[in-house]
Amino acid sequence: MTSRVAMGFVLAIGAALLAPAAQARGIDCSKATTRLDKIICADPQMREYDGRIATAYASALTVWNGAIAAYVRRDQAAWLSAFRAIGVDDNGGCTLDDRDCIRAEMLHRTEDVESGTYVHSGVYLAADGRKLLLTPRRANGYALRVFKLPDRNVTSLDEERAALWDGPNAMVAKMGDANGAPLPKACTLRLVPTPLAIAVTQTGACDGHSYAGSYRRDLKQTLADYQLELF
């Protein structure tokens, strides 16, 4: 099992139509019918994660007066679609007999939606076709990838303290190659996010490419649409 549910099979179109209120409530254990729901309801830690996910999701819907609610719904629906496929689709992920794996998946989701970076996560597009993917991590952590295929691709370094906040309003990430390994020369990106855009400035050669500029948030896409680019 990888660290997250494999997302290639996600059928987000149908899941995106799920009622947000239903998603925000979490599982009603008095009405649990599926084996997965019963497994969660029988496990105190999983029930806690389910409640925390629901609370964080409901809060994210209201951020900036609902400015990113469309993205939050799609992101939650994509995760739910993958998670609910445990025991149904042979996705190379958890099985219903592996409680530790299910618990770990719920913990990962809990850490993502409770992250201080979650409200800025997602897909951002520049006018020239460059794309910026901002992935939330535990606490205020995040991972960053900026690319324009086929060969312009940088990823925050795969090391501690490579992607940090500089005060409450800016992120600073040390960037590496497509695999998060160091580049020949230092490359640092500074991000100043607003609800629907991110302004990027660059320090260093960044392998001869520029990643600076303005990126607008695309509320119709989620990180699940870019799994190959993320990992």
Rank of each mutant, 00 (worst) to 15 (best):
R4Y: 11
V5M: 12
F9M: 02
V10D: 04
I13D: 15
G14N: 02
G14C: 08
A19L: 13
A22P: 00
Q23P: 03
G26T: 04
D28W: 13
S30G: 06
S30M: 11
A32E: 13
T34H: 15
R35D: 09
L36I: 01
L36Y: 12
A42P: 02
Q45E: 09
R47T: 01
E48H: 03
I53C: 06
A54T: 01
Y57I: 06
V63Q: 09
V63M: 06
G66I: 14
A67F: 07
A69M: 11
A69G: 07
Y71S: 04
Y71N: 05
R73E: 11
R73I: 11
L80T: 01
A82V: 02
A82M: 03
R84C: 05
I86W: 12
D98T: 03
R103I: 13
L107R: 15
H108G: 06
E111L: 10
Y118T: 01
Y118D: 01
V119Q: 14
Y124Q: 06
A126Q: 15
G129T: 09
N140M: 14
Y142M: 10
R145P: 00
P150Q: 05
P150W: 08
D151A: 14
R152I: 01
R152N: 04
R152W: 00
V154D: 03
V154E: 02
E160I: 04
L164G: 04
D166T: 10
P168T: 02
P168V: 00
K174L: 06
G176C: 08
D177W: 05
D177F: 02
N179D: 11
P182Q: 13
A186C: 02
C187A: 08
C187H: 12
L191R: 09
T194M: 09
A197E: 05
V200N: 01
V200P: 02
G204Y: 14
H209G: 03
A212I: 07
Y215P: 04
R216L: 14
R217H: 09
L219Q: 10
A224V: 00
A224L: 05
A224P: 00
D225I: 01
D225E: 08
